[in-house]
């Protein structure tokens, strides 16, 4: 017990996230039913009117176009909302008990984000099983590439959720802020409509949105080994996603170092 414990705390925090999720059946059902419904409603609704801007991609229907976007949607929302417990527990005994333990604060961040990331990635992979429905067979490479992008994206957004949750007084406030942030980030990522057909200003915003790179990487992954032309190659997209995740994890670790009380 000479140096601060890290491995056990991280493992315990991770395990707790998983146990909590498994015990809550409504979360299990909601986590899959919601994106599935979203995909079906939007997909079937725009199926007849949607047209890809590029001539060579004219055969792609909206259900197919939207598929990687829904994977991103699952990742963003699941990852962020696993941290909502931080809002409640920060003011109550549970999280305070962790803060007066010798485990370093960054280990608390790591355990929490790894737990949330695991849940988000598992759900994204579960949805990925539906890929053959849009005529794209699953392959080991496709699953592996989607897994890579999913891990970096989910890490980034659990960290983001943690940062906001740490400053929030109520879960209602957390919901409001996150929806205000997440929905535009998702809509302007090339998930819901292709950037190529959008106005110039919108296209620039989309280039600055880190989620665009995750969505583009997911889109390239599901067509592997013949990815469609994209504004950035897969490797660059993944690198940007990873850098974004690292930056947010850093901010989260810095955030919890601040004292709870002034």
């Amino acid at each position: 017990m000479s140096s601060a414990p890290v491995v056990q705390p991280v493992a315990a925090l991770w395990k707790r996230e998983i146990l909590k999720f498994v015990r809550d059946r409504s979360r299990l059902v909601g986590a899959l039913a919601q994106p599935l419904g979203f995909w079906l409603l939007l997909g079937l609704g725009f199926q007849g009117t949607f047209r890809m801007p590029q001539a060579e991609a004219a055969g792609i229907g909206y259900m197919e176009f939207l598929f990687p976007g829904i994977v991103a949607l699952i990742l963003l929302f699941t990852a962020v909302f696993t941290t909502i417990s931080v809002v409640e527990e920060r003011q109550r005994g549970f999280l305070q008990a962790a803060l007066v333990a010798p485990a370093p604060r960054w280990a608390l961040v790591l355990g929490n984000t790894l737990g949330g990331t695991t849940l988000a990635v598992l759900q994204a992979l579960l949805f990925l099983l539906l890929l053959p429905l849009v005529g794209l067979p699953l392959s080991l490479t496709r699953v592996a590439l989607v897994l890579l992008v999913s891990v970096t994206t989910a890490l980034a957004f659990t960290a983001l959720g943690f940062i906001i949750a740490w400053r929030m007084e109520t879960t209602r406030g957390f919901h409001a802020v996150m929806n205000l942030l997440l929905l535009p980030m998702w809509l302007l990522s090339g998930a819901a409509f292709p950037a190529e057909g959008a106005s110039v200003i919108l296209r620039w915003i989309m280039r600055l949105n880190p989620v665009s790179y995750a969505v583009s990487a997911l889109r390239q992954a599901i067509y592997w080994p013949d990815p469609p032309t994209a504004f950035a190659p897969f490797g660059l997209c993944l690198a940007i996603s990873a850098a974004f995740a690292l930056a947010l994890l850093g901010v989260a670790a810095w955030t919890v170092r601040r004292p709870l009380y002034g």
Binding site: Q8, P9, R16, L19, K20, R92, A97, A101, P102
Partner: peptide, 27 residues
């Protein structure tokens, strides 16, 4: 430290709670 409100996760068992908090101390 024993806080005003028990620092326990209600959805976990007694043993799971105790194991979780023990782990925070490296046990």
């Amino acid at each position: 430290v024993v806080f005003q409100e028990p620092a326990l996760d209600e959805s976990l068992t007694v043993a799971e709670n105790l194991r979780y908090h023990g782990a925070l101390y490296g046990l």
